[in-house]
């Protein structure tokens, strides 16, 4: 039977990959800004599926929660604030299409060549079958990693490779502060004062 012959990892990978790329392209080729947002949700959601497939459960859930759940609500909010028919679809000039697709196509070609050129990336994991589910369940490790403890590297025999032992505490703190500042800044900007010329003329 065909089911028996199938590699389910591959099946799901291709399914999610097609969804991801397909909806990404739909974002590109759609002109209606709300449709674009909708396709973007689906594309990002499907890529969360890829994350799950690659064993990054936590990142996948994060992707759904923050990226899809948070970011895109903001985007859609923006869409609604500007939901005037004249902005809903703004056509791209065909000249731009030609240039962008040309450059983009060549970039894609280059990236693909690179991706499939490195032998190490192309060969399957020799101990793929041995990987236990537990090895990918790394929520606590991620948490510890942010707190500065890299438990996953404790068993690294090579002292040199244990270089990143301090984990990601500093970046984590920096990102936290960054996030705070950004949110305050964004809130401030969105409520900015606007100069209105009483005389009515443009200054």
């Amino acid at each position: 039977m065909i089911f028996a012959a199938m590699d389910w990892h591959a099946f799901f990978f291709w399914m999610f990959a097609l969804l991801t790329c397909g909806f990404a392209l739909a974002v590109l080729f759609s002109n209606n800004v709300v449709h674009m947002a909708f396709y973007l949700i689906l594309s990002l959601g499907a890529s969360a599926g890829l994350f799950f497939l690659a064993g990054a459960e936590f990142v996948g859930a994060m992707q759904l929660m923050i990226y899809v759940g948070g970011t895109l609500v903001l985007v859609i909010f923006g869409v609604m604030l500007t939901a005037q028919s004249r902005f809903v679809s703004m056509e791209t000039r065909s000249g731009e299409w030609v240039v962008a697709l040309g450059v983009g196509g060549s970039l894609l070609f280059m990236l693909m060549i690179t991706a499939f050129n490195v032998e190490d990336w192309r060969s399957p994991n020799p101990r793929q079958g041995e990987v236990t589910v537990a090895e990918t369940q790394v929520v606590s490790q991620i948490g510890l990693g942010f707190a500065g403890v890299r438990v996953d590297k404790l068993d690294q025999p090579d002292g040199q490779l244990r270089g990143g032992m301090s984990g990601y505490l500093l970046p984590f703190v920096i990102v936290s502060i960054h996030l705070l500042v950004v949110l305050i800044g964004a809130a401030y900007m969105a409520r900015t004062k606007r100069r209105k010329d009483v005389s009515g003329g443009r200054s």
């Binding site: 909708f38 949700i41 959601g45 459960e57 936590f58 859930a61 994060m62 759904l64 929660m65 899809v68 759940g69 895109l72 609500v73 859609i76 369940q137 790394v138 929520v139």
Partner: peptide, 17 residues
């Protein structure tokens, strides 16, 4: 799921779409 709490919240949040 190792991060089930998170997953439930995340997916539930998608209902708003």
């Amino acid at each position: 799921l190792n991060s089930a709490v998170f997953f439930v919240l995340a997916v539930l949040g998608l209902e708003v779409f």
